[in-house]
């Protein structure tokens, strides 16, 4: 039946743009259907050839100069306003603070963005039919002991079904060189991967990011690092993290 999926659907799959439910269904079909697998491979190869061959025109240097030269002209209407120094001191201070803050975040982001990318890739991988869970259970008392013999730390496994995030299971995973515990929680038909590992190499800064429709949230507590990844809306993921942190503490 999935062999009838139109080109646009197959291309969206190859582009990584299918929504999760249809992605899982189509992945399951691909496992069984060599013809569709070959077709998807053909689409990917064509896209790669296209990307490698299409030139990207860079803006000529004179254009940059023209733009810079042209912009202050449109700022002229403000010229006749009398400028007092003091009101701007506050502005200048907050601007400087904002720049410093940005630098700070930028530096931290440089360290953690690799991990966030890894977490995202792992989340996407885990949704491919069979890799999502090694231990499948909605019972925290089954999932928690399962990790006991496999990791040298105990990821807090809490029951969040009352908050609308039932536990689905867990698995062992890897982020970069780091072995991590992955807890899987469900939200409607979607899943949240929560990666947990000891913060021996330093705590993660609290930050959130969005990439291609996936949301990630990272934080540290009680000597453990956490990254939550899901395609559910950002506010729902925030609610999940809030509920998890409150109970895990």
């Amino acid at each position: 039946m999935d062999c009838d999926q139109p080109q646009a659907f197959r291309q969206a799959y190859a582009d990584g743009e299918l929504e999760l439910g249809r992605l899982i269904e189509f992945e399951a079909h691909l496992q069984k259907c060599p013809a569709c697998r070959a077709d998807v491979e053909k689409i990917r190869a064509g896209r790669a050839a296209l990307r490698a061959s299409l030139p990207r025109y860079a803006a000529p240097a004179r254009l940059t100069e023209k733009i810079r030269a042209a912009l202050p002209i449109t700022a002229q209407p403000r010229r006749n306003v009398t400028i007092k120094f003091w009101p701007y001191l506050g502005w200048a201070t907050s601007l400087a603070a904002a720049v410093l803050f940005g630098l700070f975040i930028g530096l931290q982001r440089g360290q953690t963005s690799g991990l966030l990318d890894e977490a995202l890739a792992s989340h996407a991988r885990s949704l491919m039919a069979t890799h999502l869970m090694d231990v499948v259970s909605t019972d925290q008392h089954t999932v928690k002991p399962w990790f006991a013999g496999k990791t040298n730390f105990a990821p807090p496994v809490v029951d969040l079904s009352a908050e609308g995030f039932p536990l689905a299971g867990g698995r062992l995973d890897q982020l970069g060189p780091q072995p991590v515990a992955a807890l899987v929680y469900a939200r409607r038909k979607h899943f949240i991967n929560l990666f947990v590992w000891p913060s021996t190499s330093g705590p993660l800064p609290e930050q959130s990011a969005e990439t291609r429709g996936y949301h990630t949230l990272s934080w540290s507590q009680d000597g453990l690092n956490f990254i939550a990844v899901s395609e559910i809306p950002a506010d729902e993921l925030t609610a999940f993290v809030k509920a998890y942190r409150a109970q895990a503490h």
């Binding site: 912009l71 009398t82 400028i83 701007y88």
Partner: peptide, 10 residues
């Protein structure tokens, strides 16, 4: 006089 606002806004 004109330097400050145009330095902040752009």
């Amino acid at each position: 006089e004109s330097a400050f606002p145009s330095a902040v806004a752009p």
